[in-house]
Every structure is written in C-alpha cells, then in structure tokens.
Simulated assay, not measured.
Amino acid sequence: MTDPLTTHRLFYDAVESGDVDLMASLWVDDPGTSCVHPGSVPLRGTSQVLRSWTVLMANVGYIQFFLTDVDVVTLPRGADGPDTAVVVCTENILSGEGLDAAAEGFSGGRAVCTSILVKAGGSWKFWSRHASPIAEMMLEDD
C-alpha cells in the first residue's frame, strides 16, 4: 500500500466484501485510533473500531459505495516524505437487506467522510475516520 488513495479504496473494498481481515490490516494498532460512524459517538482504540466494523459488515446484506469529490492532501514531515494524509470524499451509498437485495429493494444515502491516514512501517494505514450523513434539502417551488 504505497499511496494513501490505494489504502482508502481498499477500506471500501473491505466493507463491501465483508472482509474482516482486510479491514484489520488497514488500521494502525494503537489506543489513539478513532472512528465516528454517522450518528454515533466516537470509538477509541483499534479493537473498538474493528469490532464496530465487524458488527456492521455482519449485519448488512449488501452495500456498495460510489465515491465522489475525493480529495487528498499529504502533510510532509521529515526527509522520507509525507507521513500523514487527509482524504475527504462524498460517499454515495447503495444498500439492501438479505441475500437477494434486488428483490427486496435497495436504499441509498450520502455521507461526507474525512479519513486521516499515517505511514506506519512503510504502509499507509487509517488513524482516524469520521463520517457524517448529508441532509438532503428539498426546495419547494413557489
């Protein structure tokens, strides 16, 4: 995982496929890591964060993310180049329940997400992630 956007995309691959091992490989193992799911309180520490993703992935029949407005900024530090990256994107989410989501119906939503990745052992890994739902505003015609 030589660049932050590859790690970022692998995160969504892990969620979509329910790959708990891949998800675990993408996070720094540290009590200072954090994750805020939409509408939730902050989770601290890698074990709490990974537990939350394991539960989420086990309880979603189908989920797919279409990312837009992806922006990455690296923060240089030291002679070895950047060691921190901030990725902001819009998640356009399609989800469904059960094994046959197409027959049971899909639902969708949007969230804005900020992820902080750090270089750890030569690889980019998640340090923090915060997602917040985007309120869809309906404008009435006059």
Rank of each mutant, 00 (worst) to 15 (best):
P4F: 09
L5Q: 11
L5P: 00
T7D: 03
T7M: 03
T7A: 14
H8Q: 12
H8V: 02
R9D: 08
R9H: 03
F11K: 04
Y12Q: 01
D13A: 14
V15P: 05
S17P: 05
D19K: 05
L22Q: 13
L22V: 10
L26R: 05
L26Y: 11
D29P: 00
D29C: 07
H37I: 04
P38L: 15
G39R: 04
S40G: 09
P42S: 10
R44G: 03
T46P: 07
Q48I: 06
R51H: 15
R51S: 14
W53M: 09
W53D: 04
V55N: 07
V55T: 13
M57A: 05
V60C: 13
V60A: 14
V60K: 12
G61N: 15
Y62S: 10
I63A: 07
F66P: 04
F66L: 00
T68S: 15
D71K: 07
V72H: 02
V72F: 04
V72K: 01
L75G: 03
L75K: 12
P76V: 01
D80L: 03
D80R: 05
P82N: 04
D83T: 13
T84R: 14
A85Y: 08
A85E: 10
V87K: 04
V88L: 09
C89Q: 01
T90G: 02
E91V: 00
N92K: 02
L94S: 11
G96P: 11
G96D: 10
E97R: 12
E97G: 12
G98I: 09
L99D: 14
A101Q: 12
G105E: 03
G105N: 04
G105V: 02
F106G: 06
S107W: 06
G108M: 12
G108E: 09
G109I: 11
G109F: 13
A111K: 02
C113V: 15
S115P: 00
S115N: 06
I116E: 08
I116R: 14
L117Y: 14
A120F: 13
G121L: 07
G121R: 07
G122Y: 15
S123D: 15
S123N: 12
W124G: 02
W124F: 00
K125F: 07
F126V: 10
W127S: 13
S128R: 01
A131I: 12
A131P: 12
S132N: 12
P133V: 14
M137S: 10
E140Y: 10
